[in-house]
Nucleic acid binder design. Sequence first.
DNA 1: TTTTGCTATCTTGCTTTACAAACTAGTGGT
DNA 2: ACCACTAGTTTGTAAAGCAAGATAGCAAAA
Lengths: 108, 108
Amino acid sequence: MLKGILQGCLLILISDEPMYGYSISQALTEFGFQDVPKGTIYPLLINMGKKGLIVGKMQPSKEGPKRKYYYITADGLQEKAQFINQWSTLSSNVNSLIHKRSDNDESR
Amino acid sequence: MLKGILQGCLLILISDEPMYGYSISQALTEFGFQDVPKGTIYPLLINMGKKGLIVGKMQPSKEGPKRKYYYITADGLQEKAQFINQWSTLSSNVNSLIHKRSDNDESR
DNA sequence: TTTTGCTATCTTGCTTTACAAACTAGTGGT
DNA sequence: ACCACTAGTTTGTAAAGCAAGATAGCAAAA
């Protein structure tokens, strides 16, 4: 339907400030996406890197293993804008369907 | 992310009134989903039938080939309600991300 | 009557998405 | 030494999405 809602969300997060996988997974939890699995996030980040939407740089951390910080690219910003448009279209389409008001069963 | 937004939309359409594949594809177009391919709709309908969410009945048509009208089941109605909930959660999560207001770049 | 065009459905096969699960590895506390 | 938390990658699998083509009924134009 809409390819990669998650990808769009990651672009938004990363465009706000560079993030690494683990912190992204925590941020998503805060935004209500309960527990998006690592098996989804990491491969997606790698794939987004291949597409040139983000670039990752390993940086050492004092409180644990190295972190791979991702930065958004120009292409990524463009893709982000496109996602926001697609989302708003999709969102209003689905909402108009849901509120079709056919008096069938919604509120009773 | 959210499994089958399309499935949810079909449940809503069919719960409103029984429909057949071709009419569903036309209805979707009216609701702004431009041209959802048949290769997506028909297999999905068959799959939803297997899951017991809908039942299909062939009925002859005077203006063309036979049509397979789908009717929603009790399970389908339940699934529909669940979809509407999931959608509203997802939708508000994504919107809160989009309107994160980080003064980074949205309106300039 | 043959062809074209619209309606209608199904099937095959490919690509992408999503994810569980396992593996590796650094740091700090008990 | 062991556990818990942080952090990342890889592998394998199932499901989703869809293009493309096969099949077929009907009707009006050629």
